[in-house]
Design a protein around this nucleic acid. Structure first.
Lengths: 198, 198
DNA sequence: TTTAAGTTAGTGAACATTCACTACCAGTAA
DNA sequence: TTACTGGTAGTGAATGTTCACTAACTTAAA
């Protein structure tokens, strides 16, 4: 699916609105104002509102897939890979906080079936990359195998989702990357292979 | 703030709608249909829609506070306390899945400032109980002190939020309690006091 | 007789979408 | 050069629908 330049501009404007005023603010009127043209002009570029949102989510998904693959491909150590992957995410969301809202917006989840699927797809993409790294780390005995890779991935993903949510709730005030790296360090401590001292 | 019987019926109906069709489905019309009376009758019991949502969230918050306090008060071991607290949560949400949607709905977050605060209050209540248990566990050397209580709480809360989200996304199909206990076991393994084997 | 809890029948505002129409540009044929 | 043709990207007005909310009335119980 090709995305034209003007379409990209529109989904970026839609993203900005999401950041500023959430899913409720994403109306055709607001979108047209932000684009500087009439509402009706939107329909020159998209079939309807749902297609705008879908295009945004699908763009985000493919973009994230290639970004994650790229950011870890030259790194050997699983531990460093994990750090690089999340740093890449932090940097992206710092630059594009609106896409964060897109992923976390439960409001979006309810809009339509295809939007729901698009969001699940994004979560799946992230999960896929995370799992690969964890499995490699377990093979190399750098991560504990007391838990399955799936279970470790769940805990890591959950922690990061909450991290992102708090950033959003704070109004994007604290340093996402700084605090995120601290979280990553903490998680790495926990998932080290270890023996109970008891 | 006293809640009358009829008001309670209304916020329960509102909760059911949230479960079935999300925040977008929670309209005065749908709510009136579910209650079996006209829209205007709602305004006999509440000032407006915002007050309905606020009442629901505040009711949930105080209820959760006392439930959490009660479910752990007779237990000594922090580990068992943690298990009991989360089991209590699971049972509650199993019985009242609609309230789950209330907490997780980012859509709600955008509605108004006071609703935002009410949701933060609920998160704060949970955090408060969790922190207490973790601090006790660290003092008694049952949990690691490689991370601060705050940091451990973050990871635990994040994991459970994701767990709940997945339950919801699955359409409430899998056994929340069973899978949740497995997650709890996993988390307890990770936060055990431990030495690196390296 | 007052009050609580309901009714019907509306309100204006906001919503996504569609309509007929236009300005502008590129290519092409006379 | 000029005139025709088609495509792209816009306009403003209007559509039907849904939204939260309100005014005025009814009924029945305390």
């Amino acid at each position: 699916m090709e995305i034209k330049e003007r379409q990209l501009e529109i989904i970026e404007a839609a993203g900005e609105i999401l950041t500023e005023s959430g899913i409720a603010g994403l109306t055709t009127k607001n979108l047209a104002v932000k684009m500087g043209f009439a509402e009706s002009a939107l329909y020159r570029h998209f079939k309807g509102k749902e297609e705008i949102i879908l295009t945004m989510l699908r763009y985000l998904s493919t973009d994230m897939d290639s970004r994650l693959a790229n950011s870890t491909k030259d790194i050997e150590s699983p531990e460093e890979k994990l750090k690089a992957a999340f740093n890449n995410q932090f940097e992206f969301f710092k630059k594009n906080p609106h896409f964060l809202v897109a992923i976390f917006s439960d409001g979006l989840l309810e809009e339509s079936k295809s939007i729901n699927e698009a969001i699940l797809q994004i979560m799946g993409t992230k999960r896929k990359h995370l799992l690969q790294i964890i499995q490699q780390g377990q093979k190399q005995k750098q991560f504990t195998d007391a838990l399955s890779a799936d279970e470790l991935a769940h805990i890591i993903m959950g922690s990061f989702r909450l991290h992102m949510l708090q950033w959003r709730l704070s109004g994007f005030t604290f340093d996402l990357k700084l605090k995120g790296n601290k979280l990553m360090t903490n998680l790495l401590k926990l998932i080290q292979p270890h023996k109970s001292i008891l």
